[in-house]
Amino acid sequence: MYNFEFTKPKTVEEAATAMAAEGAQALGGGQTLIPTMKQRLASPEVLVSMTDIEGMVGVAAHGNTLTIGGATTHAQVAADAADLFPGLAALASGIGDPAVRNRGTIGGSLANNDPAACYPAGALGSGATVTTNKRDITADDYFQGMFETALDEDEIITSVSFPIPEKANYQKFEQPASRFALVGVFAAKFNDGVRVAVTGASNVGVHRWTEAETALNSNFSESAIDGMSGNANDMIADLHGSAKYRAHLVGVLTRRAVAGCG
């Protein structure tokens, strides 16, 4: 990989200053960025490590909101959110593998917004709010297509706040090689409505499946979405699955997620 300047700030303010440099990029756990750099497909001039910043690690509930520090690892979320928001903890516990979960962070995952990543489905499906050093961004505004987000280049995800639903479940159908989601569906039932977010499947990246939400809002049960499937016109087609297959899986996994909500 190409070499780079490395900095490990202790505070968000220091990090923000570092991120203002030309070619600077935030380094979370590096579980995607480092392999990409090895392939020489990314060439940041400055890497700003987020791993040692005060206040950016941890899981805490305030009322009905779960707040996760931007540099919190998947493993920590899986452990610490297990009682508070089991659906999200389960999602975190299925990302990558144990070693990846010990390094990969929620901030890194959401900033990258891989179209097959799990956390974007969790965040969008929960209606989370992404908090940066500059502002709060609702999930509906945050995700803007494959690898595209509302973040400015020098913006840092300091935390993510999840409204805790009455119940939620994530269903991931794994792509057999990468173990990312071939299709993943996060369904959450709140007292004011249902949210369904789909990852892995679509050319537009993570998105809400509004038809299913409407059906589930009136009747939160598998039968309400019986026979429904995603829109094959929007779906990814690759060697792991056709667009039609992915569209079908969206329906299957959404039903399973609803069933999984219990």
């Binding site: 480092i34 392999p35 890497l47 593998d97 010990n102 390094r103």
Partner: peptide, 24 residues
């Protein structure tokens, strides 16, 4: 970062040593 042949423990946690900078 798929194969895991490089797994070591850093501060008690299993990590893929090919996917963490030495500086970290």
């Amino acid at each position: 970062s798929q194969c895991g042949a490089c797994v070591v423990h850093v501060n008690g946690k299993a990590v893929k040593s090919c996917t963490i900078f030495a500086l970290e």
